[in-house]
Write a protein that binds this DNA or RNA. Structure first.
Lengths: 206, 206, 206, 206
DNA sequence: AATGAATGAGCCTTCATTCAT
DNA sequence: GATGAATGAAGGCTCATTCAT
């Protein structure tokens, strides 16, 4: 890929993720990308399409990174759920994330624009399928339609810690917030969800 | 309250909720409020403070509206949890809502600005206290600190349906999405959560 | 005089003198005068007329203050010139001046508006007459018309120290500037001017 | 230099000189320069910097124009002083001046802003040095510090005719004012100043 | 292929002023 | 007599975009 174009995409992603579409300015993006002010329109036509491209880029990067480890086959469904949940937390909370990818996608999913559908189809749905596969093994008696709410209940718990970080921080205090860690959160959500599905807990650690 | 000022607040709330702070323009707000362009500056000093005032207004309105029904005393904890959850869904999904109140607050909570803290303290924390009181009766053996994650798991499930509406709609299809209703969703989340806490379900309907 | 009106006049004079007509805002003036924003238009009709009134006020105050001491009769013309010059310096440089009066008038005289003519007639011309009377005695052989340039040469020297303060400060340095004092400056200008008129110096001290 | 930028500078200088910084509007400047309203921001960043640039421009133009004729060597100090004074008057009063250059600089020097220091150092000080050199020859017995006041007395006389034009016009009447000319004024100030320094006059004409 | 110059619409804010009370 | 509310014009500035090179 063209060097300038790629730098532009990277700068745009970071700034869109940080400030949102409206508050981000083409000038600022070009500046951070060390590109000419006219570069955005040259390479992407207009600001809107730069945004779409940035979301798409984020999506690709995320998708690749989020490949769940090939189940070693001998893992129990409980262990696989635990892994799945921990991976979500890791992705969301890991501070070493290059970083704007997830932020940008979640912005998009909460306030959908034209880029939303692609994200769902290319990124969200595959992940949902994986989760459904796990739930398949955990709740064999349920129909397809009955499994959606369970998946939403699980994913909702996890995303809450990401989307509503500021609430949590204010409610439990900064000190307590800092003690939160991926392992503990994943253990809690896994235990909570397995119990909700009538599964004995305690043996989910892989 | 002054008429123009109040009209301004209402228009601002609606537009801020719809488009976000940056994308909303003072001109547009004044136009919708049938007020002069200088009225914002006169009554609120600047755009930012109009936003803060609008959030505060939303909060007041919400708080009043959200008074949980006085528990009739003889309700079981399970029934009270069910009521609590249903009330959240009603508040969020009721289409007859005049409006922008909740939308604006959730925007604020996901992307906190200076108005966030007030919302948490005045609106969120009281609600959290009510939930904790219910959990107190449901999980007598737990410490205060251990109850936070449970509360978050419950609230996270509910908010998911609001914040990530577009994902759900795309994942399960528009048709299926329209069949969702407050009653069913509340029942699911309640059952899921009670089971997670090791409580026999089925008797929570008030 | 009305209290509010008088406070308004005082505040206006100070701010006009400090910032000039354009840069001064009616709001700021009313604020400093503890008056309502509508007070200016109520008392003076419009900003311009408030300015004119302030200049007039300055002029009155100056005129009263600037009354030269009645010559004791037995003073020589040289001594009277010395007194005249020293009085100008005192008026201009005295730091205890209530202070915006002169500033405002000089602004007006350098950039004349409609208020200029009145200032000249009521304030400047009487002073010029006094100076001419002195010069009359010092240069008996000259015609009226020939005495104007001499007066201008004297007054020009004095005003230079006021109008072009910043140049002087930068040219000779802040330290040297601070050693300047009314007495020394008056002595210099007097000596210089008397010599220019062919008068022996050294006996002008009153 | 760029065409638009230079037209902008010229228009700005003229308008700033005429009305002062505050009263001049960017819109008006752009209009006169046949430039877009955004051009100021593009080329100069903000109004303030356009002003500074205009002052600097004026200064350059003045400096070049004000090169004193190389003394032919055989001129007496008296003749050189006469030339110096006449040149000042010519610069100030010549009606064929393209213009706003001097006006703008004098505005700046009377109400110094951030641009003042540069004007003094680059324009005023060199001129002051030239004058000091002349005074050096005229008053050999004096110290450096004693020569400043003499220089100020000379320059003050000249500037008076520029800065306080309106006073003069009103005092001596429009008719008399129009008879004033560079030659006569320069002759007067020269004679006055030479006499003040104890120099026989009458032979200063070059 | 890429850019510096330039555009015009629109931004938020502040202005002096007026009006109803 | 005096004021708080409200007005509309204009302020400086920034925006995404276009154009000629």
């Amino acid at each position: 890929m063209d060097d300038t174009k790629s730098r532009l995409l990277d700068a745009a992603g970071a700034i869109f993720a940080e400030k949102g579409y409206e508050a981000a300015s083409v000038r600022e993006i070009c500046q951070r990308a060390n590109a000419n002010i006219a570069a955005v329109n040259y390479h992407f036509g207009e600001k809107r399409q730069l945004y779409v491209a940035a979301v798409r880029e984020a999506q690709c990067a995320q998708t690749m990174q989020l490949k769940l480890p090939r189940w070693s086959g001998e893992l129990t469904p409980e262990q696989r759920l635990h892994q799945y949940i921990r991976l979500m937390f890791e992705t969301m909370l890991a501070s070493n994330r290059p970083s704007w990818h997830l932020e940008l996608m979640l912005r998009e999913l909460a306030r959908p624009t034209e880029a939303c559908e692609a994200v769902v189809e290319d990124y969200i749905r595959p992940m949902a399928e994986q989760l459904k596969a796990i739930l398949n093994d955990l709740t064999p008696g349920l129909t397809e339609d009955d499994r959606w709410p369970i998946g939403f209940s699980i994913v909702g718990q996890v995303l809450f810690y990401y989307v509503h970080q500021p609430i949590i921080r204010l409610l439990i205090g900064q000190a307590a917030y800092e003690t939160l860690n991926v392992e503990a959160l994943a253990a809690h959500v896994t235990r909570f969800s397995l119990a909700a599905m009538g599964r004995p807990a305690g043996e989910s650690s892989p």
